[in-house]
Design a protein around this nucleic acid. Sequence first.
DNA 1: AATTAGCACTCAATGAATGCGAGTGCTAAC
DNA 2: GTTAGCACTCGCATTCATTGAGTGCTAATT
Lengths: 341, 341
Amino acid sequence: MNLDERKKLILESIIKDYVETAEPVGSRAIVRKHGLNVSAATVRNEMADLEEMGYLEQPHTSAGRIPSEKGFRYYVDWMMEKESLSDEEMEVLDKLLHENLRDWSDIAQGVGNFLAQVSNYTSFIIVPSIKFTQFQYLHLVPVQEGQALVLVVTDIGLLLHRKIDVPKGITVSDLQSVADVFNQVFRGKRLSEMKRSHLQILRDDLKNRRRVIDKALDAIDSLLENSGEEKVLISGALNILNEPEFKDLYKLKRILTILEEDELLRDILPESITQNVDYRIGKENQSEDIREMSLVFTGYQTSGDMGKMGLIGPIRMEYWKAAGTLDSVRTFIEDLLKKRN
Amino acid sequence: MNLDERKKLILESIIKDYVETAEPVGSRAIVRKHGLNVSAATVRNEMADLEEMGYLEQPHTSAGRIPSEKGFRYYVDWMMEKESLSDEEMEVLDKLLHENLRDWSDIAQGVGNFLAQVSNYTSFIIVPSIKFTQFQYLHLVPVQEGQALVLVVTDIGLLLHRKIDVPKGITVSDLQSVADVFNQVFRGKRLSEMKRSHLQILRDDLKNRRRVIDKALDAIDSLLENSGEEKVLISGALNILNEPEFKDLYKLKRILTILEEDELLRDILPESITQNVDYRIGKENQSEDIREMSLVFTGYQTSGDMGKMGLIGPIRMEYWKAAGTLDSVRTFIEDLLKKRN
DNA sequence: AATTAGCACTCAATGAATGCGAGTGCTAAC
DNA sequence: GTTAGCACTCGCATTCATTGAGTGCTAATT
């Protein structure tokens, strides 16, 4: 894994130039732009070496070199320095998230937009299933004769509000006492653990209350069904229009379609994920469809499962910036989640 | 405005063919495909007439004819028969909307997706400002020491839920009585009319209650600020990738960018709008940016302002299908909105 | 032994020249 | 009024030569 300093410098020059311009880089250009004290011919020799080692490749004989995927991988693993968010960018993020404290999924969407915007790539955020968030309390709010609103609040905020039918003639304090039952029995439990069977308390209870409780649990069940899975948020898919490698309309269409289908994203990420930034460069991706793209991603800790987020871009990606941005954003939202608790 | 039957038939043939294939239509093709009992030469003469009248145009001398925008306009105004949704499509819509009764804006998003899907164009739905919906009642739900949840319910369902700070030591019944004040004073009023000045009742009331009321009104104000404007929902923007006229990457990018910017859509629609389906074909559009596209749109009645929805596609659009679809969907959601009340 | 100048060579990209064919417009006959 | 026939037009695809950036190799230089 050791390249001598000059080879490293040349590899880096080629990567930086190529990422910027999307054009093969020639020996002359390197000498000129990066102020090496050797001639182009020397650089050519080094480049031939690097190519033989697999770090560079040539689109065709008479073109310059471009970094191979292995070249990018080497750079990312051994040479790269992450580039964090600038102060101004941090400020934007800060403002964005403190402006209005809404649902966590709203916040996540905001973070996604932010990621896409600062990076100019496509961002994704996977919000973990709410199954494992803690039930805090439930309120039953009468709406009108025969209807009530179920409110479920968890450790990450309000989650469910849904109308249910209730028996006519039920009073506010009836509803209150039903809610009290929930709050006693389930407080601190995870949503996924809320089962009818735990409500033995009610074995011989009033029929009316029983019915309301059933309805409320139905509502919770349906919540888990609808949003019980992790949620995938995608932002900035159109940013790939800026990448010259996708000027081919057919390719473009295929990729945009994938990016629109949030379901597909779940599959291209590894099951388990850590809070370190990780990379999948080009063909390192399992999924056929994104073999021409790179992924930079990381996990973030929530009160429940680990969430995931990341950026999708061309192989010719500013990995340094993407990784730095993700690092900054991760710490930021983890702080935010802690504070909200 | 009178064309003889044969000219109409020829115009229609050209429109149908061109809409389908995006290629100029030649005289031979018309005779062959549409079973005219005249020769190609005759059709050519008629076509020359139609061109002179401005209903057709020729991309270049040696090509067939394509309908001009005026030609499409004539067809839409005088000849077209709308093509309603098929039974299966109606069923899909029905299922979609009865599946889960959520927020109206969720429903609107669903309808938008549906429109985009059945039409294969880009759909937009403008949900009118909530300012003019009727306040039904407010609930204050204690969350934890020093915090409460404001719930505002209007005639179209739950609208706002936001945490506010409340003085410590305030009791549930205190909150309840504050809510009662709101419900007495504002019931049936429009959100935009809810002002502090109406709360003279409170002139000499307890300081604590006063403070809570102020906070709640702040929350409502902020609601109006954030979502007080009409909301634009766009769906299926990527459908334009299917249209060959946008194979030019530069055009494509410009248009997709516009479609992503929902703000811009507001501007391209006329201020006042009726429940009839209306059209803007190509250069009939005021806005520079969509002069190469057509709009088909209609208003839908809500309990407040008139909402708007429609489809954006190439000039070479299936107006008949688009108009029929919008008609069907309009009546559908108007029924839905009535029922929910 | 490493570096460099020099030069022949390669190959994509560009643009001019050419042929093809779909479709028209016109004329003369029906 | 309709139609057959035919010359004509013009976009499109193909071919071919030209250009130029960039390489690889060799021989000279440090």
